[in-house]
Simulated assay, not measured.
Amino acid sequence: MFIIDPCSNRITPVPSKKFNELGFTERQHLQEWLEHHPEALSTGKDDELLIIQKEFDGFDDTRERLDLLAIDKSGNLVIIENKLDDSGRDVIWQALKYAGYCANLKKLQVVEIFQRYLNKKAQLEGGEAAHADKILVEFLQVDDLESMQINTQKSQRLIFVAANYRKEVTNTALWLSQFGISCQCFKATPYQAADQLFLSIEQIIPPPEVSDFMIGIMDKEDEEKSTTNELKHRHRLRLEFWQKVLDGLHASSCNLYNNISPSKENWLPARPGIPGVSYVLIFGKNEVRVELYIYHPETEKNMMIFQQLKEQQDSIEKYFGAHLDWQPLPNRKACRIQYAMPVDGYDKANWPEMVQWLIEHIVRLEEAMKKPLEQVKLALGKTV
């Protein structure tokens, strides 16, 4: 790591440090940093992690506890083991034991584990605990708890974090990866420049140049796995429903979805040409919804866009013709403005009304947001 001095056109190295030199400990510091910023271990927006427990010790007949337990966007449990300046020799064996314990956890047990974590956080912070099932439904982008696929067979992932790794650890991690066991090693290095401290976290196993290739192979294997009859049924329903919606949209004044194809997912996005902003149609089991979804690559700009639109809430809602649900989503790297209608979505007798409702309200939302989004686009251009 170097400091750039534009005036002298020179760079100055920032000296790396050891965690123990700076007085940092595994539990009080590294673990806390990763708990509150799990995106440090994400390799992209599709690899987002949600921490669901810390120092988890809910294993039968053992007093052992894993550092952090997370879930990824595919519903896989992620065992995160943190070490400081040295990985030690036994960290792989330790994590494999935890993965074996966690492999037996059923869906409702995972929800209960997450709820206990949320309850403890709320107690410490003096607030009201959020609902674990609602957060998981939102995070996994599914209709309800029943449609979640969590902790399926052989899906557990291992993540290791340390400043230095012993050769036996890296060799074993690479070897396990050949058998479909997801092992990632992240190198965490603290730096100090004068009175400023920095932390660099980079993935070293698998090497970045082969990571995408390995992920591609794993994705292909996952795709080839047979899914449940319920999921197949829902996919067929969604494809059929979205085709009806798109047919109606093509005959309307809305051009957002002219080049969009039907999807097996429960959401159908369209982009208006502003970075990080999408219009989204939602087809759920219990509701249909239109929304403006804000997910800018630069996290701080999400709230800037949201706040700029929020300042015009009265005029936007007047133009739209109803009160909108404004959701800043502070625990995620996104914001959302939505309007929903409750309905029995899987009853095809309701589909004509649902299709008409979605078309009418996405047209109204686009019209209501047109001028405010033009102002947002100008503001984003000024901040580039």
Rank of each mutant, 00 (worst) to 15 (best):
L176E: 08
Y257S: 04
P275Q: 15
Y339I: 11
N255T: 13
P190Y: 04
E202T: 12
S278N: 15
H37A: 09
L22W: 07
K333N: 15
M354H: 03
H36P: 00
E32F: 05
A349V: 13
L373K: 06
C183F: 08
E360A: 13
F213Y: 07
F114C: 09
E112C: 00
V277Q: 04
I51E: 11
G44R: 05
E81S: 12
F198S: 04
Q184M: 09
H131P: 00
E223G: 11
Y117V: 03
C185W: 02
G100I: 06
L145C: 06
E224N: 13
G345S: 12
W175A: 15
N82H: 10
A95F: 02
K154C: 12
K18C: 03
Q115C: 01
Q94D: 08
L77A: 10
K244A: 13
S8R: 14
F59Q: 13
H233P: 00
P330S: 11
K73H: 06
L41D: 14
K107G: 04
L69F: 08
P269Q: 02
E265Q: 13
P15N: 14
W242L: 07
K73W: 01
V142L: 06
Q307A: 07
E138L: 09
L329Y: 12
N331L: 12
N20C: 06
W326K: 03
P262M: 05
V110L: 11
D344Y: 05
K107P: 06
I204N: 09
W357P: 03
N266Q: 10
M148W: 05
C335N: 14
D195M: 09
S8M: 09
P372Q: 04
L118P: 00
K382A: 14
F241W: 14
V277F: 02
Q192T: 04
I316S: 08
K120W: 03
Q338G: 12
R166T: 01
A122G: 04
I316Y: 03
R65P: 01
Q338P: 00
K225F: 01
G284F: 03
E64L: 10
T62P: 04
Q156I: 15
Q243E: 15
V142E: 12
Y165T: 00
M303N: 13
V110P: 09
R364M: 12
L380H: 03
G58K: 08
I282M: 13
H36M: 06
A99D: 09
V384D: 10
D344W: 05
P269D: 07
W351K: 07
F186N: 09
N255S: 14
F179C: 00
S278I: 02
M303D: 11
F59P: 06
V169A: 07
K17E: 14
H296Y: 05
F213V: 07
V110G: 11
I205K: 05
A188K: 07
